[in-house]
Design a protein around this nucleic acid. Structure first.
Lengths: 341, 341
DNA sequence: GAAAAATATGCAACCGATTGCGTAATTTTT
DNA sequence: AAAAATTACGCAATCGGTTGCATATTTTTC
C-alpha cells in the first residue's frame, strides 16, 4: 500500500512552530492574522505541498462546495451547451458539479434529486422531466433551505428562481411569421403541455392564429415526445389524411427536421407546399436543406446565468430574490419558411 | 437561520440504547452484527430519517466516492453521449461525477486535472485535449495511486487503462470503401496527429491507399481542428486549386458535412463528382442529403465501459489490469459515397 | 502612565462516521 | 466440564479543518 500521508495544517503549523488554528486562518486570509505570518504560512504550505482536505472542511462547515444538476437528457446539443455554460461558471468559482439525468421520467427525477440531496449538494440546478407532475420531491430541499434554480423547463414555486426565455412570445412570432408567408392551416408539433416551455409555445401559436383571424383547429395539433422518431411517424400519418396543412410550427428542431425529411421523401415541397419553423437553433437546422427557420435559444447563457444566480444565492443568502430571469430569444428566418411573394 | 440538525448515528444509537459503532456496522451489513439488531437499526434509521454524512465518511475512509471526468468539449453529440453512458454506470454504483472541460487546450487540461485532484476524486476518466503533449500533469495522480482511465483520445502510459476503437482499421475501411467506389484522389481531412485517434485514422488511410496501388500525396491531406468552420474554409480553398479530388475521408462528421455543404454550393455533385465519408455517425449524418457514409462509434458503450473499468479498479485494486479495451466499430455506407457501378 | 481598545495568536471542543482492539456472551470442541 | 472458538457488541482514538472564546501583545486614548 502506497497511501502517502497528506500534508495537513498540523504539519505546516509544526514546521512554523505556530498553532493549527493560525494556519487555518492564515490560509483563508482571516483579518486577525498578521501579514507577515500569513506570508510565512502561504510559503510553507506551498513548499510542503499542502492541499486542503475538503471533507474535513465540509464536515465542519456543513457545505460541500458542490452543485447538483438534473437534466432530462444529456445528449442533446441544447442541453450539452447549457451544461457547458454551467460548468464554466461553477468551475471559475471553485464549485464541483454533479450531473444526473432524469431520462424524461418523473420517477427518475425524484431519484436524482434524492441522490443529490444525500450527497449534500449546496444547491441544485434543474430542468424538469416531461412527466413531472408536482414538486413534492423538492420538499426535502426546501425544508433545509437548499436553493433550487430552474432553467428552461421550470415550475411555479415560491422562493425559487427560474431562468427562461419568453416561450409564449417566441411561439407567437414563429407562428405569425408562417402566417405572414401565407400559411393558413398550420400544424403544431408540440411537447407535453405540463411543461411551461411547450404550453407557452402552444399558447403563442393559438394567439397568433387568433390575432390573424384564423380559427384554431385541434386536429392540427400533435403532442408527442418530440423525438425524431415521433416527428416522422406523425408526418407519415398526416400525409395520409386530408388535413392539407400548409405550414408546420414544431416545438423543437429535431421534430421539424424529421418532418421535413419525411415530406421530401413523399414529394412534398418545403417551403412552397408546406413551410416549416422549428425551435432551438440546433446545428442541424443549418445542415438540412432548405435551412430551417427556427428560434434561437441562448443555451450557453442560460447555463451561465442559472449557475451564477445559484452561486450568488449561496454566497449571499440575503441577495436579491428575483424569481425569474427572462433571456432574449430571436426568430431566425431561413429558407424552410420563406416563400417568393 | 433554519439549520436543522441532521440525524446522526449517535441519535439512532441513543434511541436504540446501543453504541454508535454498532449502528455504523449494522447500517453497512457488517457480518458481526446480529440479524435482529440490524433490522432494528435499519428500521430506526429509516423512521428517524437518518442520512449518511458523506464527508465524515470520506474523511475517515479517505475516499470520496466521486469520479472526475475531463473532456475536450462537452457540447458535441459524441461526448454528450459518452458522458451519458458514464453517468448511467457511476450513478448505479453510487458514485458522484465531477465533469470539466479542457476546451481542447493542454493548459486547461492541466488545470482541470489539478482541480479534480484537489477535490480528491477517487479516479479520473479522461479524453485528451488536442494539444496535450505529455502526461506530466498526471504525475500527482500516479504518485497517489489514483487510477486513470483514458477513453477515445488516449495516451501510452504504463499502468493506466484505455477504452478505444480500432481507429486504424476504421480509417482503412472507410478509405478502402471510397477506393472501391472508384476514387483515386482522396482528400483526408484530419485532426491533430498528436492524438491517437487522428494519427491512426490517417495511418489507415495511407495503408489503404498503398494496398490499392495508389500513391500517397501529401497535398491531399489537410490537418485542422475539424470544426465546421475549418471544414468549410479548407473546402473553399480546395475547390480553387486544381487538386481535382474525387473523394474525401474526413476524421469527423462535422467537417464532412461542412465540406458537402460547401461543395453543393459550388455545384459539385456528391457522390458522383466527389464521394465523401465521415466519422462518428452523429445524427447530422442522417439529415444531410445525400446521407453521409460514416463510421459508427459506440459512444455510449465507451462511456459505460470506461466507467465500469474504473469502478472495478477502485473496488478491487488487484483486479485484472488489462491495459486496453477495444470496442467494435462499423462502417455505415450511405448515399454520400455510393456510386452507380 | 493607567485604562481601554485593537490586534494577533492559541486552546480545545467540535463536525459524524469508521475501525482496531478489547470484552462479554454464546456455542463448539475435546 | 473445562478449554477453545465463535459471535456480538462497545470503547475510544482517528480523520483534518473550523471556530467560539480566552489569552497575550501592542497601540490608542484621556
Amino acid at each position: 500500500m502506497k497511501t502517502i500521508k497528506d500534508v495537513t495544517i498540523y504539519d505546516v503549523a509544526e514546521a512554523l512552530n505556530i498553532s493549527p488554528s493560525t494556519v487555518s486562518r492564515g490560509l483563508k486570509d482571516h483579518p486577525h492574522i498578521h501579514k507577515e505570518t500569513k506570508k510565512k504560512i502561504l510559503a510553507a504550505a506551498k513548499e510542503m505541498g499542502y492541499q486542503q482536505n475538503k471533507f474535513a472542511s465540509s464536515l465542519r462547515k456543513r457545505r460541500t462546495e458542490t452543485i447538483g444538476v438534473v437534466v432530462p437528457k444529456l445528449n442533446s446539443y441544447f442541453m450539452a451547451t447549457v451544461i457547458s455554460g454551467i460548468e464554466k461558471v461553477t468551475n471559475k468559482h471553485g464549485y464541483g458539479l454533479i450531473i444526473s439525468q432524469s431520462q424524461e421520467s418523473g420517477k427518475q427525477e425524484t431519484a436524482c434529486v434524492s441522490t443529490l440531496f444525500d450527497s449534500r449538494v449546496d444547491g441544485i440546478l434543474i430542468s424538469l422531466a416531461f412527466d413531472t407532475k408536482n414538486l413534492d420531491h423538492f420538499d426535502k430541499l426546501f425544508n433545509k433551505d437548499i436553493p433550487v434554480v430552474f432553467f428552461d423547463r421550470v415550475a411555479d414555486c415560491q422562493g425559487c428562481m427560474s431562468v427562461i426565455i419568453d416561450n409564449y412570445k417566441a411561439g407567437y412570432e414563429a407562428t405569425a411569421h408562417l402566417i405572414e408567408q401565407g400559411c393558413k392551416r398550420i400544424i403544431h408539433l408540440g411537447g407535453n403541455l405540463l411543461r411551461n416551455v411547450y404550453s407557452e409555445r402552444f399558447r403563442g401559436y393559438r394567439q397568433a392564429l387568433h390575432d390573424n383571424g384564423i380559427e384554431f383547429n385541434q386536429k392540427l395539433v400533435f403532442i408527442s415526445d418530440l423525438t425524431e422518431q415521433s416527428g416522422r411517424e406523425i408526418m407519415i400519418r398526416v400525409l395520409k389524411t386530408n388535413l392539407q396543412p400548409d405550414g408546420i410550427f414544431a416545438a423543437n428542431d429535431a421534430s421539424a427536421v424529421a418532418a421535413i425529411l419525411e415530406m421530401q421523401e413523399a414529394g412534398v415541397k418545403v417551403p412552397d407546399d408546406i413551410a416549416v419553423a422549428g425551435f432551438n437553433n440546433e446545428p442541424v437546422s443549418q445542415v438540412i436543406r432548405p435551412n430551417l427557420t427556427t428560434v434561437n435559444y441562448p443555451a450557453r447563457e442560460i447555463g451561465e446565468i442559472a449557475a451564477t444566480a445559484l452561486i450568488d444565492k449561496l454566497n449571499n443568502s440575503q441577495s436579491i430574490n428575483y424569481s425569474t430571469i427572462v433571456l432574449k430569444h430571436s426568430l431566425i428566418v431561413r429558407q424552410s419558411s420563406l416563400r417568393e411573394n
